[in-house]
Design a protein around this nucleic acid. Structure first.
Lengths: 232, 232
DNA sequence: TTCTAAACATGATAATTATCACATACTTTC
DNA sequence: GAAAGTATGTGATAATTATCATGTTTAGAA
């Protein structure tokens, strides 16, 4: 997590007004792009409120979702290193962002050692998540990956309200497919299958989680080959 | 890249002797572990000379390769944030490492702002690589992923000598399978197929690249669904 | 409201890959 | 150098998933 507030926390008193002076507020509607692959890096975005997908792939048809982000996360942080974005980001819901120009951001980092160290921690966490996802792509078949995604959605977005088991936000079938490298038909069939098994319930396009334990079992069950002759 | 030398470059004069005083030299033989998942993080490793694989998965049988690293790269850097490693690393060849205790490493980072910023850059680069690999897992079938790995091996390890097109280091079929989430049989068959197509030549267990252009073509050819009705 | 496009859904079929079984070659160890 | 274990290689088969076709529902625009 790396929010506006945390950023301020690691910012020394003298630099705070500089942050406030240079930041700006951005509103994007659902399905609007925040930045596009190839765009010049102008700054960094803090998600104040909303849900965003970060995706690779240019021509609309072969987009793949690299990660999803919501409140109190940052976007475009790789612009620290690059002149141009090599990924795009698109709002999933109406979203409020705080924007900070990249040169100001860099100045503040360099002047605040604690901030730099905190950012390092943040990146390490991001790396870990990327590796975890890679691991799931390497180890699991589509069915299990869908179970993993459902758990991630619970974790990331939570339920509509405390009494409900309805996900507060449901990715489209196509978006789920693009997160796990399968087709939307497979997602649809697998969700139907999960419903039959009573793991979930489909309420229109929305998804309600009925048996999170079973989903976790599925998600944890790495296939290990019976054959033990050749170690791998 | 983040080498011993670069580390020194971003280290101020007063801190250099502290680095030299605390570093130690480690030699590991091929197939030896450098650290294991679950081990207490003791420090950070600079690869001086050698090749290493970083892997996830505990019980030997379901290991998956997260990344491969060679000269002038670092290992165990996520220990900055965590108490225990959640991945393992194993030498692919006899390897020489420089080791620096984590507390010294952290002190040096905090005292040298330029170093912290350089490290940030390094992590961003790592993130990008992780995302690129994720993208290839999402977009390509095993055959194309193998082409991508072959190109990566060329890029990472190069050829045996300037005149030769023989890879200077060949991962085992099982290791390749574990990098791309397939079985070693599929790797073997695909390599045989590539040989038939004259893209590569198999010299015992080694691989010689005969037509890098064709491999690149394969590796670039993302499958896009014919069907354009539903955008995704 | 009606029209249109996007998203969801399902069946049939083809293609791909995993799995299993077995054979051979190469390495390491005793 | 024999034995044991590991790595490579190949064929047959089963299982899974992608693809294609087609229909229905939903959401948004005119």
């Amino acid at each position: 997590m790396f929010s506006n507030k945390l950023f301020k926390k690691y910012c020394s008193a003298e630099w705070l007004p500089i942050f406030d002076l240079n930041k700006s507020n951005i509103q994007v509607k659902a399905k609007e792009r925040i930045f596009n692959e190839g765009d010049l890096v102008k700054g960094i975005y803090f998600i104040e409120e909303g849900k965003v997908k970060v995706l690779s792939g240019f021509n609309g048809k072969d987009e793949k979702i690299i990660r999803i982000a919501s409140n109190d996360m940052i976007l475009g942080h790789r612009g620290i290193h690059y002149k141009h974005y090599h990924i795009s980001s698109e709002a999933l819901t109406d979203t409020t962002l705080t924007f900070l120009p990249i040169n100001i951001f860099l100045k503040i980092i360099k002047a605040n050692p604690n901030m730099a160290v905190y950012l390092l921690d943040f990146f390490i966490e991001e790396l870990r998540e990327a590796e975890d996802r890679m691991d799931s792509l390497l180890n699991f078949d589509p069915k299990k990956r869908i179970a993993i995604i459902l758990l991630k959605l619970v974790d990331c977005f939570g339920f509509a309200n405390k009494k409900s088991n309805l996900l507060s936000f449901t990715l489209s079938r196509a978006d789920i497919a693009n997160m796990i490298g399968t087709t939307y038909e497979t997602v649809i069939r697998t969700l139907a299958n999960f419903e039959k098994l009573n793991y979930i319930e489909l309420v229109g396009k929305e998804i309600a989680i009925k048996d999170i334990t079973k989903l976790k079992e599925l998600a944890a069950d790495k296939k290990v080959r019976k054959k033990t002759k050749a170690k791998l």
